[in-house]
């Protein structure tokens, strides 16, 4: 008497689980087939996708389907190079859109900082080391990304400061100088970190880079 009841209950449980399992699988396929890009507007677009008999509950899972994605490997490695709280909203948006490029951007930032520390023995602000760092970072981005995306990332890093802020103007000008020089070096097949560093030092000595607070060149 007791055993048949248990069996019936087990069968009922299995049947009750089946629809959710099938929805889970088919909704993922339904979402994948729609080729929707995950992002801020994904859930809205997903909510109005066409459904059939087997996928009619799927729009109810849109929020989860849009958000619940495994992070790409790049996102995991980014943490080593990113001080997340220090990112501007514009940087955060670019990191979200271009995670693998963002990894290159912040790796290049580290390389520029290492170069700056190696040569200047300081990582200053508004001084020669600051100009050097921005020049080299921009040049490395010209090497690793398209010019347009490089400029987007560089501008995004400065976007928290008002447009008339002298430090922002200095950084943007030195970024631009780095991008231009890197283009020239690239044309001649000579673009590398060391050629960029040498170019930055030459431009600093010539007074072509912007320095708000001169502290002196390395001895």
């Amino acid at each position: 008497m007791f055993l048949p009841l248990v069996k019936i209950e087990l069968v009922l449980i299995l049947f009750s689980l089946l629809p959710s399992l099938s929805y889970g699988i088919s909704c993922e396929d339904w979402f994948k087939n729609s080729k929707l890009q995950k992002g801020p507007t994904c859930a809205d677009k997903c909510g109005v996708l066409d459904t059939h008999m087997d996928t009619f509950p799927c729009p109810g899972l849109c929020e989860k389907l849009c958000a619940d994605s495994p992070k790409p490997k790049e996102m995991l490695s980014l943490g080593r190079y990113l001080y997340y709280p220090g990112l501007t909203p514009e940087e955060k948006s670019l990191v979200e859109q271009f995670p693998s490029e963002a990894l290159k951007v912040f790796l290049a930032k580290e390389r520029a900082e290492w170069g700056c520390q190696r040569i200047f023995h300081r990582d200053g602000v508004d001084d020669e080391s600051d100009a050097f760092r921005h020049f080299v970072w921009a040049g490395l981005l010209e090497q690793d990304l398209s010019s347009e995306l490089a400029k987007k990332f560089l501008d995004a890093h400065e976007s928290n400061l008002p447009s008339n802020h002298p430090s922002k103007s200095m950084d943007l000008a030195n970024n631009r100088a780095g991008l231009l020089r890197a283009k020239e070096l690239k044309k001649n097949g000579m673009l590398s970190q060391s050629s960029l560093e040498a170019a930055a030092m030459t431009e600093l000595k010539n007074g072509s880079l912007i320095v708000l607070i001169p502290r002196g060149m390395p001895k």
Binding site: Y83, G86, T88, D123, G124, V125, H157, N160, K168
Partner: peptide, 9 residues
């Protein structure tokens, strides 16, 4: 007068 990540810090 120092630098850590960006001017916001």
């Amino acid at each position: 007068t120092g630098h850590f990540w960006s001017a916001t810090v």
